[in-house]
Amino acid sequence: MRLTLRVWRQPGADAPGAMATYEVEDISPDMSFLEMLDTLNEALILGGEEPVAFDHDCREGICGACGLVINGEAHGPERTTSCQLHMRSFRDGDTIDVEPWRASAFPVVRDLVVDRSAFDRIIQAGGYVSAPTGSAPEAHATPVPKADADSAFEHAECIGCGACVAACPNGAAMLFTSAKINHLRVLPQGVPERETRVLDMVAAMDAEGFGGCTLAGECATACPKGIPLPSIAAMNKEWLRAARKARR
């Protein structure tokens, strides 16, 4: 395959950036999108140019490190992560636009790399259970109904990649935060901190400068892990309950 890439280049956080055009050749349809970028970078290095910086780690779609806006869509046209997107999703001769996540809470560090520490600070505000750790407890000591376990697992699938923020027209982190809250809410271990968790995590989310939810639904469409949109309604319900209860 022969492709034309238009890639966002920005040498540093405070430096101005612009789209740069590159031609790449000999791309196999079986390559992942990141392998295609590797090919571009090899050519750039050989030509004495700076390679394009982009985040990646496991390349198996489970770590949440990679994240590119490809042709205006977070993680591109397939419902998966950028690393699991394959070049067979494109056609020979295509022009592909590659941009970083855009949100004021996710400042660009360099090229396609953004700083997602804001997510870490939301987790620090309450995305945990306070329990003594040690050896693994006996599996049946705390029974969890199957339906609750399934619901917790559905939300625990969130890998924190930030595609929801990138896709949201308001740069909101509602889907991410709701996934973390709903994951712990249904489990017995998460019950003791139920109220403070939702209040503190939503407050942390607001403090990071994320936008609010207008129910556009772009986040759930972009999510590579299929976190459902009603997750946000469940978080709203949880917040309203906690806000009333915290007054007593």
Partner: peptide, 18 residues
């Protein structure tokens, strides 16, 4: 106002949203 501040830079590749 908050939403607009949270997304100050538009994507170069525009597409119809929502």
């Amino acid at each position: 106002r908050r939403d607009l501040r949270a997304r100050p830079v538009r994507y170069v590749h525009r597409r119809r949203r929502t």
